[in-house]
Design a protein around this nucleic acid. Sequence first.
DNA 1: CGGGTACATTCCCTTGCGGCTATATAACCG
DNA 2: CGGTTATATAGCCGCAAGGGAATGTACCCG
Lengths: 105, 105
Amino acid sequence: MPIPFDVLAEPSRRKILDLLLERPRLVGELTEQLGLSQPGTSKHLRVLREAGLVRVRQDAQRRWYELRPEPLAELDAWLAHYRHLWAGSLDALERHLDAMEDDPR
Amino acid sequence: MPIPFDVLAEPSRRKILDLLLERPRLVGELTEQLGLSQPGTSKHLRVLREAGLVRVRQDAQRRWYELRPEPLAELDAWLAHYRHLWAGSLDALERHLDAMEDDPR
DNA sequence: CGGGTACATTCCCTTGCGGCTATATAACCG
DNA sequence: CGGTTATATAGCCGCAAGGGAATGTACCCG
């Protein structure tokens, strides 16, 4: 699963993630918060689903959307290559933690 | 300066950042590596410049492009809000480090 | 089974972006 | 100064993506 940069490039989709960070939400709730049409919201949710950033739990006619952080973890891993450029004095610690990730025990 | 998600959404631009991670480069060099036209490369470089992700050092007719990691650091800060979702056992350590960032001494 | 609710899908329109070609700009060299 | 090198800008085209209205689908309730 590639890092979904293009999916995150959309402000409404990032706002959805921010809202789901607090708690799972229904589509209607998200629609209201976003100020979009319901179909518009559903479309974004589909993109987020296909990128693995959210998952759905069905409850009768309702759909609870919740966060799936895995793709964000991959983004984090990508960022790690650059992190030494600004992390400064924490470098050594971070290299140690990165090594642990590769070979945890 | 907002986080340049849309700028990073473009594969060629991410490749430019990857190339600049090794060392500063000339436009011609980047053009060759990307397999784009020279104007195409310049256009991407302009976008990266305006997003603060690269800076230019002029040397006669040549322009050395180099990385400016600040916007990536902001992206890292955004990601931090989500990091506890996958970091698991390292939570406590990270919260400690985050606190240090806010109030280093 | 009929109507209502909650959401997804389809269709259409418009805009923005990435790509290229052609051209401008600027600096070096002989 | 004239030509060449290195890069930027302008102009144009095609496509994909976001937005809304209309419609489809699935489930509940009486």
